[in-house]
Nucleic acid binder design. Structure first.
Lengths: 358, 358
DNA sequence: GTCGGCGATGTTAGCGCGAACAGGGACCGC
DNA sequence: GCGGTCCCTGTTCGCGCTAACATCGCCGAC
């Protein structure tokens, strides 16, 4: 029990229980068959659109279906066919924005394909937790599995039964599984190039936690973009994705000697928001004194103050691609390529970037 | 990265079975039983912790379990027991923040109780869509159903089979189902009282879409709080929860005669963010010229500029309470009260509110 | 007129599991 | 030493569905 909840009774209705028949059992194919005067197999055929059923029979079956309120029993179907038409999704934070949007894409794509989603979100990526989670989901008879932000899989400890098709996002350098990810490197390069082209001498970077592969890739690409143009590479500032960590870092940046920091690339929008707040507090003008670029293009980024220039990720696209790869594996079993599929990004220029003050 | 990792599952398989046995089939209770030299029923008892099994036997069974890599087949179990240990969640926007956080709470609580989540997110709340969704989920053999933001259920068209325990959030005026919701009225009252106590003459309101019950309740409470203190009730401004709509409204508010608008209560944080941006653009000082209060306390609200005073909702608490009510119904079938459970809120005072300029 | 063929429907046999019951051995009290 | 009682374990059966096969009846070809 999650504890103290003040409850106010608005209205108490005695539950709507008509003089109902006690056998609460759901109607089965056999029940429908009896009503329609056919065999249950014929009903099955109608329900699944299989085989040829003559129009008159189909009509009668459809009526009976309607009459008894038949709903197929997924468990029985799964048991008989060995397929569940369900996809498992394992995630480590339903609260992180990107994960959620990927989940949304997965959900939509799965739904479109007639698959349902079995969701398991683990608080922490402990060995036992992940193992249990995988066991749980594969035991649930999922036809396939998506693991979001699957950095833990880098650890050799974890394994997924080879019989279950699997796609991961934001995952393993070791490339053991098919992998879908935003084109992190291209995004970071877009951000840096944009700032350099505006005339900034170099770009400071607020990175995400080292445990995140996305953070590492963005950081590497940031560094690469600077180096390839012969620019100095300032030391990075490590945040944890939260706006609070961005604020903390922003306060540090704001108190550097004037002119030292003229451009900041934050590895996500939330940290950029924190940086902006710190700059406002310190009287640093954005983009007058410092330009700021984010990453993600969250729904609110355009209404930050100032509106944030950022790199738009197609999270939903990532989710959809995961599902599409998974369905492909399910329909065409066999060896799969473990290549990484890159989802393109896009730079959205708003008001937080400008040429440096002369 | 040490990439050479052989999956345990594969090892075991190749060790147990002669050279090439293609049976893709997962090991069943019977397989384990054969290895352990007992009946499958005994294995079942060990797996489920039922009945009394003598230590020696249990030991042998546990070893066999390990050896063949048994994973229970959820479909078969559901078919045999009539229970799936899964909860269905129907939602209409995995992208909306509150819904996601509730989902997170649901997921955590369900997981703790050994239940998995079957997720279905509908893009739109059309009659057919919802009906299909409900059918889909109940057909999935969920033991219970949570509907998030279930405003559609206000329509008498929708019905859920009485056999499926159901809890809804943010739902029906008609009170046909057990209901969990944030204490919207208390939250709005907190916001308004805070502003009035600071000395503001009245409070303007940016409301959510009329289709949202949460929006309607907040609006009603805002109006009630003003009236109860004999304050004038300005006309409301209707947004759609997005920061963009807040911005649009903020531009209107910013251009009112000076002194007319000194306090704004926005029905969520995102719209408040948009209002803030509009005020910044127009040179309206917050909180000097106008105070702004939001609702939700999103993770970023404390790093808005200025940091936003807002009403904190316990979304996770809502989710957990949903699950707890649901499990209660599942374990104790029978008539249920359709009362509304209110989850308390909390005012978080930050820097966006201050007494009006003298 | 006979036969082959085919489309429509019915029958059978499990899928893997657990509930219910059936047995059989050890132990108890007297 | 005997019946009763428990405890442990095995057997049977069916959950609802579908795959595979069996059957039936109709048609056209020769």
């Amino acid at each position: 029990m999650p504890g103290e909840v003040s409850a106010e009774v608005l209205q108490v209705t005695s539950a709507t229980s008509p003089p109902a028949s006690p056998p609460r059992r759901n109607p089965s194919l056999a029940d429908v068959a009896k009503v329609a005067g056919v065999s249950s197999q014929t009903v099955s055929r109608v329900v699944n659109g299989h085989g040829n059923v003559v129009a008159a029979t189909r009509e009668r079956v459809l009526e009976a279906l309607q009459a008894v309120g038949y709903r197929p029993n997924a468990a029985a179907r799964a048991l008989a066919t060995g397929r569940s038409r369900a996809l498992g999704v394992l995630t480590f934070s339903v609260s992180r924005l990107g994960d959620v949007r990927s989940l949304s894409g997965i959900s939509a794509a799965a739904s479109r394909a007639g698959y349902s989603i079995s969701l398991l979100s683990l608080r922490e990526a402990t060995t036992t937790g992940v193992d249990a989670g995988i066991a749980h989901l594969t035991g649930q008879d999922v036809d396939g599995l998506v693991i979001i932000e699957a950095e833990v899989l880098d650890s050799p400890v974890f394994s997924v039964p080879a019989s279950v098709p699997l796609v991961v996002t934001d995952a393993v350098a070791s490339q053991r599984y098919p992998n879908v990810d935003t084109d992190q490197a291209a995004g970071a390069a877009l951000a840096v190039d944009h700032l350099l082209r505006l005339g900034h001498r170099t770009v400071h970077h607020v990175t995400g936690p080292g445990s995140s592969r996305a953070a590492r890739e963005r950081r590497r690409a940031w560094e690469g973009a600077l180096r390839s143009q012969g620019r100095p590479v300032p030391s990075v500032h490590v945040g944890d994705w939260s706006s609070a960590s961005g604020y903390r870092i922003g306060r540090v940046l704001a108190h550097r000697p004037p002119g030292e920091v003229t451009a900041v690339f934050s590895a996500n929008d939330q940290m950029a928001l924190g940086v902006l707040r710190a700059f406002h507090e310190a009287g640093v003008d954005v983009p007058g004194d410092v330009s700021v670029v984010g990453f993600d293009d969250t729904a609110e980024a355009g209404d930050y103050w100032p509106p944030l220039t950022t790199v738009r990720q197609d999270f939903e696209g990532v989710g959809e691609l995961c599902v599409s790869l998974l369905l492909d594996q399910i329909q065409h079993p066999g060896p799969v390529s473990t290549r990484t599929h890159r989802v393109p990004v896009q730079l959205v220029v708003r008001a937080s970037t400008a040429p440096p003050r002369a």
